[in-house]
C-alpha cells in the first residue's frame, strides 16, 4: 500500500494532472507579471505556481516532483528571490533612496509600466513559490517519517 502511494495516485488523476499542471503554472506566471495592472502580484502568483508543484507532488509522488524541482534547487531559488528583492532595493539606494524607483514609469495599464514593481513581483514570486513548495515538501516528508516510525 505504502509503496503504491509513494508512486502517486490513480491513472485518471495522473492524466488530468499532466494536462492541467502546465496551465496552472502559466496562470501563475500571468498573475505575477500583471500584478501591477490587475489584482494579484508576486505573492498570489507565487502561491499558484507553488500549487502547480504541489499538484505534481500529490499526483505523481515525491520522486517525480523532485525530478522537476529538486530540494537544493528550491533552496537556491528561495534565497535568490530574497536577494533579488534586496538587490532591487540596493540599486535604488545607490541612486539616492532605499527602494527608490529607477525604472521608467511607463504608461498606465501597460505590461511594462509601474517601474520596479514588476521586478519586485518576480523576486517575491521566486521566494514565495519556492518557499511554499518547500513547506509542503517538508511537511510531507515529516509525515512519511512519522508513519515509517510507527510501522
Amino acid at each position: 500500500m505504502s509503496k503504491e502511494r509513494e508512486q502517486g495516485m490513480s491513472l485518471i488523476v495522473k492524466t488530468i494532472t499532466r494536462l492541467t499542471v502546465g496551465l496552472i503554472l502559466l496562470y501563475g506566471i500571468y498573475i505575477v507579471t500583471h500584478g501591477h495592472v490587475s489584482p494579484g502580484g508576486g505573492f498570489a502568483g507565487g502561491v499558484i505556481i507553488a500549487l502547480a508543484f504541489v499538484h505534481l507532488l500529490l499526483a505523481f509522488g515525491k520522486d517525480t516532483a523532485f525530478k522537476v524541482l529538486s530540494e537544493s534547487m528550491m533552496s537556491i531559488l528561495e534565497s535568490t528571490g530574497a536577494l533579488l528583492f534586496l538587490l532591487i532595493a540596493l540599486i535604488g539606494f545607490v541612486g539616492g533612496h532605499f527602494f527608490m524607483n529607477v525604472l521608467p514609469k511607463g504608461h498606465p495599464f501597460n505590461l511594462f509600466s509601474a517601474g520596479i514593481i514588476l521586478p519586485c513581483n518576480i523576486a517575491i514570486c521566486l521566494k514565495v513559490g519556492a518557499g511554499l513548495f518547500a513547506i509542503a515538501v517538508a511537511l510531507v516528508l515529516l509525515k512519511l517519517a512519522v508513519e515509517k516510525e510507527e510501522k
Binding site: 505573492f43 513547506i135 517538508a138 511537511l139 515529516l142 509525515k143 517519517a145 512519522v146 516510525e149
Partner: peptide, 23 residues
C-alpha cells in the same frame, strides 16, 4: 495581504512544530 502572509508563515511553523511533537 501582508498580515495573511505573516499568518501563513507562523501557521506553517506551528504546524511543523505540532507534527514534530506528535512524532
Amino acid at each position: 495581504l501582508t498580515a495573511i502572509v505573516i499568518g501563513l508563515a507562523t501557521t506553517a511553523l506551528i504546524v511543523a512544530l505540532a507534527m514534530r511533537l506528535y512524532e
